[in-house]
Amino acid sequence: MAANGRQTLGARGEDLAVVELQRQGMEVLDRNWRCRVGEIDIVAAEPGEGGTTVVFCEVKCRSGLGFGDPLEAITWAKLRTLRALAAEWLAVHRVSAAAIRLDAIGVLLLRGEPPRLTHVKAVG
Rank of each mutant, 00 (worst) to 15 (best):
N32L: 10
F56H: 09
I105A: 05
L108P: 00
I40A: 10
T8M: 09
E72Y: 02
I42N: 04
H119M: 08
L71W: 05
V18R: 08
A44N: 05
L21T: 14
C57G: 03
A77P: 07
V59T: 08
R94K: 14
V19P: 06
G5W: 00
G25F: 06
E20T: 03
R23L: 07
R83H: 12
P47Y: 13
L9W: 05
G13S: 06
Q24C: 09
A97D: 03
T81A: 14
E49I: 13
I42S: 08
V95S: 12
V107G: 03
D103R: 07
R62G: 03
V59L: 03
G13A: 03
W33C: 00
L108Y: 01
A97F: 00
A87C: 09
E72R: 14
E113R: 08
F67G: 06
V120E: 14
D103T: 11
E46L: 12
G51C: 01
R116W: 07
L65N: 05
G64Q: 10
L71Y: 01
G13E: 02
G112V: 05
D30C: 11
E88V: 06
Q24D: 13
V18L: 06
L108I: 01
H119R: 10
G112Q: 02
C61S: 15
R34A: 12
V18M: 04
F67T: 11
V123L: 01
D103V: 07
P114C: 01
G38Y: 10
L9K: 11
E58H: 07
R62Y: 05
A44Q: 11
I40C: 11
G5Y: 01
I40W: 08
A86D: 03
Q22T: 04
L79A: 06
G5K: 10
S63A: 15
I105P: 00
E20G: 02
S96N: 11
D41N: 13
G64V: 05
T118P: 08
R116G: 00
V92W: 13
H119S: 05
D103N: 15
L71P: 03
V55C: 14
I100G: 11
R116F: 00
E88R: 15
F56R: 00
T81M: 15
A73P: 11
S63M: 08
E58V: 10
L85A: 11
A84S: 09
A17P: 02
T81D: 11
E88Y: 01
G10I: 07
G64Y: 10
A84W: 02
A87G: 10
V18E: 13
G5L: 13
A87E: 12
V28Y: 13
E46S: 14
R31M: 13
G50Q: 10
E14I: 04
R34N: 10
A97R: 01
V120H: 12
M26C: 13
G48T: 06
L29P: 14
R101Y: 06
A98Q: 11
R116T: 06
V19I: 15
G48W: 00
R34S: 14
G48Y: 02
G25T: 09
L85K: 12
A2Q: 04
G13K: 05
R111N: 09
R111V: 10
L85C: 15
T53M: 03
I74R: 03
L9H: 08
F67E: 08
F56Q: 04
L85E: 10
L21D: 09
L110H: 03
R12I: 09
